[in-house]
């Protein structure tokens, strides 16, 4: 469904992604693992074309999206939940969702605000509140809900468990499992291996912007040396 082939991305002169290639198949939850600075966020941004790869190709549903403006990428059905959450703090919860709203595309799930409020009951209570009144956990839920309003077929989740209380992280696990059951494809980057284990089918490990491992989580568990070398847990 999503394919990166030999992607090279730079921040200024810093070479962050180095010939990175991997694929995400439809219906899977893929965990992108790696240390801090390994290039996880840059990978996400390179997929969204927020950082434009200098060479290589990103294909989504068979279409080459390299160099495409970000908003067009999003319109194709790629949803992006950034690391820093970036909700619109001056807008209400309902307005935040409105910003994310896009018509459903072929084969995508058609989300409505009511369905999202069922999935995130906390948000329903606070629909008239401004974003800045929400707690960190609620903000994280809102970013995910906002992205789902665009009816994406693939969601990029950048470190969803960062800075969130363990009990909320558990809720997040359940949400991701629900989404997966509904047929959504997810690529998530994580530092918390426990979290990744709880939701992902596949793992891609990157280090220095290069892929070091690509396989199922069972395979990863069977090779503790890989885990130790690149994830250092």
């Amino acid at each position: 469904m999503l394919e990166l082939s030999a992607v090279n991305s730079f921040y200024g002169k810093a070479h962050v992604l180095n010939d990175l290639s991997f694929t995400v198949a439809r219906g899977q939850v893929v965990a992108l693992l790696g240390r801090n600075g390994a290039g996880k966020t840059t990978t996400m941004k390179s997929i969204m074309q927020l950082v434009q790869p200098r060479s290589g190709k990103v294909t989504f549903q068979g279409q080459d999206i390299t160099g495409m403006p970000t908003h067009k990428v999003a319109k194709l059905g790629l949803g992006y939940v950034p690391e820093e959450r970036r909700i619109f703090t001056d807008l209400t919860v309902a307005e935040n969702l409105e910003v994310g709203r896009q018509p459903p595309r072929d084969g995508t799930y058609a989300w409505t605000t009511d369905m999202l409020f069922d999935l995130f009951p906390n948000l329903a209570e606070r629909r008239g509140n401004r974003g800045k009144a929400l707690s960190g956990g609620e903000q994280q839920m809102l970013t995910i809900a906002r992205t789902l309003m665009g009816n994406p077929s693939l969601v990029l989740l950048d470190e969803p468990s960062e800075g969130i209380a363990p009990v909320i992280v558990e809720q997040m696990v359940n949400v991701i499992k629900t989404l997966k059951a509904d047929g959504l494809t997810v690529l998530l980057s994580e530092q918390n291996l426990h979290f990744a284990r709880a939701v992902a089918d596949m793992a891609v490990i990157i280090e220095g912007g290069t892929q070091k491992f690509n396989g199922t989580l069972e395979e990863l568990n069977a090779h503790p040396e890989i885990r130790d070398a690149y994830l250092s847990i």
Partner: peptide, 12 residues
């Protein structure tokens, strides 16, 4: 556990 740690699936 109830208000914060949860079931302990997301840490060692």
């Amino acid at each position: 556990q109830e208000v914060y740690l949860g079931g302990g699936t997301v840490f060692k």
